[in-house]
Amino acid sequence: MAELDKDCLFCKIIRGEVPSYTIFENDDVKAFLDLSQVNPGHTLMVPKKHIANFFDYTADDAQRFLKYIPAIANAIKNYDPKITGMNISTNNGASANQVVMHSHIHFVPRFEGDGLKIVTRNNEANYTEADYQKIAEQIKAQF
């Protein structure tokens, strides 16, 4: 496990220095219950390589670590027949509310009437066709 950081909380969990409620683990990833339990079964999946967030992933990292998302999501969904959906998300960077700077994916089971609100906003009225085109072209240029 040479690719782990000595001071990172999730690296400590991977090494077994901090206890966790592990639901899945192999040579590539570890998935464990988030102590906040936004809803029952709320799980985090982390790569067993210290990567700060998706901005630092290589194509090989993505192929190696992200392939487990469907299996973990389905295992969580299948543990409780009342689960009717799931938010699968990641926060990349402090401005996006990333708290632990080790890449992780949240799996938040959803239940009918659970009251959990994911807040977004619609700014469509603030954009013209020219605005959309300019943004799209600027992003395309990054590939």
Rank of each mutant, 00 (worst) to 15 (best):
F65P: 02
F65K: 03
K67E: 03
Y68S: 04
I69L: 14
P70C: 03
I72N: 03
I72V: 15
A73V: 02
N74Q: 15
K77F: 03
K77I: 04
N78M: 05
N78T: 01
Y79Q: 11
D80L: 06
D80S: 10
P81Y: 00
T84W: 00
T84A: 10
T84C: 12
M86Y: 05
N87M: 05
N87D: 06
S89C: 11
S89H: 02
S89A: 14
S89F: 11
N92F: 00
N92S: 14
N92Q: 03
N92A: 13
G93T: 09
A94V: 12
A94H: 07
S95Y: 01
A96H: 06
N97L: 03
Q98H: 02
V99I: 15
V100P: 00
M101K: 10
M101V: 01
H102C: 08
H102I: 07
H104G: 12
H104C: 10
I105W: 05
F107Y: 06
F107M: 05
P109I: 00
R110Q: 08
R110T: 07
F111N: 05
F111K: 03
E112C: 01
E112Y: 05
E112Q: 12
G113K: 12
D114I: 12
G115M: 13
G115L: 13
G115H: 09
G115I: 09
L116W: 14
L116R: 14
L116F: 15
K117A: 12
K117V: 14
I118A: 02
V119W: 08
T120W: 15
T120C: 05
T120H: 10
T120Q: 11
R121Y: 13
R121A: 11
N122V: 10
N123V: 07
E124L: 08
E124G: 03
E124H: 09
N126S: 13
Y127S: 06
Y127C: 01
T128C: 09
E129D: 15
A130P: 02
D131I: 10
A136F: 08
A136M: 10
